[in-house]
């Protein structure tokens, strides 16, 4: 899990790169790390382009991260979903909870481009 801060659009966006498998064993480290990220910024992007597999517990962890971002008046946006991962989001209706972008750059830019959208939420 790589994490970097992006300030290009005048807003500090945390971009996390998720890798490999996100299942019961992988979700605990994510939850722990995300609590740390939240202290830096509530505007997060999860780059899932290198995420191969996700199951219900992994999904639960990501939804948990989203909830914390929303509580801090931020948002969690997803980028680069592979077909398999996208299928899990479709299946569980979780897709409706997230804004999804094709790559991390677009997702990060979206925070700067539509500040009003963030306020609406």
């Amino acid at each position: 899990m790589k994490f970097r801060l992006d300030t290009q659009n005048g807003i500090t966006v945390g971009i996390a790169e998720l890798e490999g498998r996100l299942d019961a064993s992988g979700s605990a480290p994510l939850q722990k790390a995300s609590a740390d990220w939240q202290t830096k910024t509530p505007f997060l992007v999860f780059d899932c382009s290198r995420l191969d597999f996700i199951d219900s517990s992994g999904l639960g962890a990501i939804v948990g991260c989203l909830r914390r971002s929303l509580e801090n008046n931020g948002d969690l946006r997803l980028a680069g979903l592979t077909p398999k991962v996208a299928m899990v989001f479709d299946l569980t209706k979780a897709r409706k909870l997230f804004s999804i972008f094709s790559n991390a750059g677009e997702a990060a830019a979206s925070f700067g481009a539509t500040p009003t959208a963030i306020q609406e939420r």
């Binding site: 639960g60 077909p83 398999k84 299928m87 299946l91 569980t92």
Partner: peptide, 24 residues
């Protein structure tokens, strides 16, 4: 296993059933 007939993508869940939903 969940299969998308259009793209042929298959997804095999680790759980013995097809996803138990997201509540623990």
């Amino acid at each position: 296993t969940l299969i998308d007939p259009e793209s042929g993508v298959t997804l095999a869940m680790q759980d013995p059933h097809l996803l138990a939903g997201i509540n623990g």
